[in-house]
Each structure stands twice: as structure tokens, then as C-alpha cells.
Write a protein that binds this DNA or RNA. Structure first.
Lengths: 162, 162
DNA sequence: CACAATTCAGTTGCGCACAACTAAATGGGT
DNA sequence: ACCCATTTAGTTGTGCGCAACTGAATTGTG
């Protein structure tokens, strides 16, 4: 078999793919792991923390809007919000104007948790070992990747349907 | 509380954190989504594909070694491998030398699937819109991140225990 | 040799992600 | 006014990830 330095041989693509998807998969889980440890103090999981961050920043929101901010659907959010409600951090209230809509509102306790959460981001930053610039750069790449991937997934899905 | 213009005010950290963890979370799910669509042809999920990639590359392996390659424990791997076995892609065989160990081996069908999987990496590459160099660069950053995060999670866990 | 500690696979329980579905409320078109 | 498509939450089922545990086999130590 001859060497092909320009583009990898057919077979090597799988090896490459293994490296790439493993890296992202592992990074995501590692991130999740650090958040899990740090958030244990607050009694939150990582996705629950994401929901709380949105509520602290945006104020009360209907489930639908929450889902748009986080790209999560009701299948994920409904039980998650229910657990936050069980923890006393959040109330749910069906809208009077539109009875389909359910507004998720911070309780006093949920609002108070924000103070304790203020320490989280710096502990995460320290854990990454990255500075602000590196994080911003990584974030930009990831967002770029996400945009491209979402578009591609849509195209693939349509290729199948249409 | 005095203002500190050099670094963001206490409150802004949460906003920043929201952006960062959302970006990684979203990228991971977007990646997963593209793989899901593309792998549907092969009848594999994304983590199942990862396992198959390792087996195609390394040959038969005990569950333990599989877990080391993928950083997954038996709680995740046992049922996953069982499903691969159910799909006829893999056999499990308890080692004669060490009866604790279970060897995961490709069936003929599992080995044959490799041919059809060869098309996957390039479809993924196309979906990302990145070239080889950009992907390699991103991969390097992610690995760097994972290493730092794993070390930090360990340190946090030890801080708690000790 | 005997006994304790360790290793390995598997199970259970919980939470998340997502597809597919249900049910109720709303809004538009005729 | 009526019907129908759409919107919004929620439920169900499947699979992954991880912690905590069980049970069997192996290894190390006295």
C-alpha cells in the first residue's frame, strides 16, 4: 500500500473520525462532570442549572420560550421543570390569556439561589485552565460548528423525506 | 461593592457562563443530531458507532479495555454491548483464563458493516463545513480542555473527600 | 492455606435527550 | 358559526451517562 500524504486513505478516515467524535464526546462529558461536582452544592444538575441561568437572566418565561433559549423541547423540559418545582425553586402557572401556555416563575428560594450560584462560573473557569480570550474563541468555534451542523442535519433530514 | 472594569462585574459572570456552557452543550447535541441522522442507515446510535469504531480498529477487546478507550464504565457499556449483540454485530465470550473478563468480538456481520461505515466520516466532515486543519485544531483544544477538566473534577472531588 | 482487598461485569435507579404521540386551546378560512 | 390546521404542554418509550451497588473471580498478605 502506497503512502498518501495529501488525503488519508479510505481506511484512515474511520480512525480520524474516531478521534474527532471521541474528542467532542469526551469534552462534553468532562464538562458535564465538573459542573456536576460543583453544582452538587446547589442541588442542581447541569441542565437544571442552564434553566435557572435563563430564568435569572430573562425573568419568568413560558415553557415554550425556555425551550427556544435552550433548544430543548417539552419532552425534556416538562419533567425537568417539574423537578425544579419539587425542589421549591420554581412555580408553574397556566396563563389566563392563553390556556395552552404555562409560565415558569422563580420562587423566592429560586431567586435567592442566584447569590450562591455567583461563585460557579469562576470555579468552572479555573477548572478549564483557559483564560477569557481562549474561552471566547472556543465558544465562537463551537457556535460556528453548531450552526453548520444544524443546517446539515436539516438538509440530511430533508434529503430523506423529499 | 466597587466596580471592577478590568474583569466583568460579579453579575455578568453568570451571563458569560450561560453562553459558554450553552455553546458546548448545544454543539455536543448538534453533533449527536447529525450522527443520528447519518447513522440511521447503519442502524447504529452515536455511542454504538463509537464502540464499533474501536472494535474495527483494535479488534476484539474485553469490556474493560473498551471502557478505557471510550472512558465509559460497565454501567453504560454492558447494556450497550448487549444491544449490539442483539443486532447481531457482536458476540460476547467469557474468558477462560480470567472468568471475570468478557471479550467483545465482532461477528461477520459486524465486520461487514465497516464497509458501509466508510462513507460516514466524509459526510460528517461535509456537515461541519470545516476542513481537516480546522478539525484537527478544534480537536486539540477539546482534548486540552478534557484533560484540564478531568484533573479539576478529580481535585474538586478530593477537596470534598479529604 | 486462609482471609481480606481488589478487579471485572452486570444491575438498579435517576436524570437527560429525543421521537412519536395525546389532548386541549387557539386562530384562520370559508 | 363551523371546521380544520396549528400551537402548546405533557406523556410514553428508548437509549445514554453515571453513581451506587451486587456477585463472582482473582490477587495479595499474613
Amino acid at each position: 500500500m502506497t503512502a498518501s500524504p495529501a488525503s488519508p486513505a479510505e481506511t484512515d478516515w474511520l480512525h480520524l473520525d474516531r478521534q474527532i467524535c471521541f474528542s467532542l464526546h469526551a469534552a462534553s462529558r468532562a464538562f458535564n462532570g465538573v459542573y456536576r461536582v460543583i453544582l452538587k452544592d446547589l442541588g442542581l444538575t447541569y441542565p437544571q442549572y442552564l434553566v435557572m441561568l435563563v430564568l435569572w437572566e430573562q425573568g419568568d418565561l413560558p415553557v415554550k420560550k425556555l425551550g427556544e433559549h435552550l433548544r430543548l423541547d417539552s419532552g425534556t423540559l416538562s419533567p425537568l421543570v417539574k423537578r425544579l418545582e419539587g425542589a421549591g425553586l420554581v412555580r408553574r402557572e397556566r396563563s389566563a390569556q392563553d390556556e395552552r401556555s404555562v409560565r415558569v416563575m422563580l420562587t423566592e428560594e429560586g431567586d435567592a439561589l442566584r447569590e450562591r450560584a455567583l461563585q460557579v462560573p469562576r470555579r468552572i473557569m479555573r477548572a478549564t485552565g483557559f483564560d477569557l480570550g481562549e474561552i471566547a474563541d472556543l465558544r465562537e468555534r463551537l457556535d460556528q460548528l453548531t450552526t453548520a451542523l444544524d443546517a446539515a442535519a436539516l438538509a440530511e433530514a430533508e434529503r430523506e423525506a423529499g
